[in-house]
Design a protein around this nucleic acid. Structure first.
Lengths: 290, 290
DNA sequence: GAAAATCTCTGACTAAAGTCAGGTAATGCT
DNA sequence: AGCATTACCTGACTTTAGTCAGAGATTTTC
């Protein structure tokens, strides 16, 4: 009962029955589960029939029939794809959007009622984030995004908050806020966000300079996503992006109060170099030739 | 993407697809899921047909057919119940036990491979415990157990460990180890463990004395299960048990380093009284008339 | 000791999900 | 231009899950 395997299995049991309840609640709108799932996939922005089929793991025959039944019902319309008339694109009709909204309301209500039952909301949410990240870690998508997008700003906010907690002297955000944004856009640099489903769980910036190297800045991984080697993936992706931008030399600075970071750099081909800027926070400096 | 409801829904999505994978893996033994579930329920000690039916939420006709198919396969035998010949009792044959063991091995292997993928094992397990407790909180069973049972000892071990962390001066286990066990058995007292599925997540002892009152000792709730009002349920159950044992007056001691406990007592009809023992750890004393 | 209730089983269904083998039209490749 | 490939559709089928009414045996209740 106390060994790790039993604990995982207990979790599986608990979650299996909860998921069953979730599923059956989707039956309340007079539509079989399969059709409801297709409708919701379309509502969530999956329009390509092949994409939906793949996402839901359906046979093409079955998928076709489910789509047909949704069309007959008047909630979905399909058209040929613009660029390739073999492919079909599905979209919701007005009625379809109403139905989708009803499913969304149902899901939101369930989530809210779950949250309302528990007083330790923050701890529970943190635990859920962690497990969701672990379960979907093969599906974490690293995407280049604008450093001023909502996702990027969320990550940066969390990043600064964490620096504030970890540095003995605190961390003054105003010092480093946004002036770098323009250097972290193509073609000078880039900004990469790791998205797990809809939640940003990590980021890194590549900041172009005029000194013959680019800098890696603001590497952050959400606490809930640590242990998934996401830092390494983010660094790899940044190095790839740098190579594609024709950058041959990378530098970065960090602080010895963040030992995981130093550890990561040391084991991935970075070598320590002398201080190369006068920023007050960092006390460790690295360089890597691409 | 950042609001609590979205986070819960992200968790639901992540877990739904994981559970789907778990389910389909049970199909690898040439038996439909329904039959596999019945076989596993029997393997886990549910022998009464009505009990299994209830647990799996099956119609009696369907249940009957599933049982029959398992019998035809030679993995299950049924007999009439000893005391009531209308009821049937199912048990595994030798082949059945082998099949059950294969399912168990599969589940264990899956749990292990999940754990092996993640470096933050302890944090992940704690998160899983927390969520499993939250999901199954309606199904937490409070059971009277021997204070020296494995479950009770696990709880007590965790309890002492926590006291050690929370008391400034630490906590010396040897002082309070086991001498009370005999006073926490019927008819002098009792010991109640809160079980969530197979995991003990809380406990409380009722210790009989010869001074005209009984003491409540060792109230503990697992960190993963806090916020579920389990402490209150444990106290209620103990008071009920005390009433059934004919005890009219309860006392307890606690420490101001455990503010949740003091808070609980104050809001549930206990009144503070002067020190009534010379135990070095407690600094707060309460009494309640039943 | 008769009537009511309980437990399981059987027969006769239905609905949903899934499989498989073509078929049609569009597209890609040489 | 011709052939292979791709994307989707259709028809014909099977399996699984589930429902419902009633039968048969047994136990409980009065």
């Amino acid at each position: 009962m106390l060994d790790p395997v039993s604990r995982v299995r207990r979790f599986n049991r608990a979650v299996t029955s909860a998921v069953g309840a979730l599923d059956t609640s989707f039956l309340g709108r007079g539509r079989p589960l399969g059709a409801a799932r297709v409708l919701n996939a379309i509502g969530h922005g999956r329009t390509d029939v092949a994409d939906i089929r793949d996402y839901l793991g359906l046979d093409s025959g079955l998928m076709s029939r489910l789509l047909r039944s949704l069309e007959d019902e008047g909630v979905v319309e399909t058209h040929a794809h613009e660029d390739d008339a073999r492919r079909r694109v599905a979209k919701l009709t007005r009625t379809g959007r109403r139905e989708f909204a009803a499913y969304e309301a149902l899901s939101n209500a369930q989530a809210e009622s779950f949250l309302a039952k528990h007083s330790q909301r923050d701890a529970l949410l943190a635990a859920m984030d962690m497990i969701a990240s672990a379960l979907t870690r093969e599906r974490v998508a690293l995407t280049e995004m604008d450093p001023q997008s909502d996702e990027a700003r969320y990550c940066l906010g969390e990043y600064y908050a964490e620096l504030g907690r970890r540095f003995k002297q605190g961390f003054d955000v105003s010092l480093s806020r946004d002036p770098d944004a323009k250097d972290m856009r193509r073609p000078r640099g880039t900004f990469i966000v790791a998205m797990s489903d809809t939640l940003p769980i990590g980021c890194v910036g590549l900041k172009g300079t005029d000194h013959g190297y680019a800098e890696i800045k603001r590497l952050w991984v959400a606490p809930a996503a640590r242990g998934l080697r996401l830092g390494r993936r983010l660094m790899d992706a940044t190095e790839d992006a740098a190579r594609r931008l024709g950058i041959a030399l990378l530098r970065l600075d960090t602080n010895s109060a963040l030992p995981e970071a130093g550890q990561l750099y040391r084991t991935t081909g970075w070598r320590e170099i002398p201080r190369f800027n006068d920023d007050p926070y960092p006390d460790l400096f690295f360089e890597k030739q691409l």
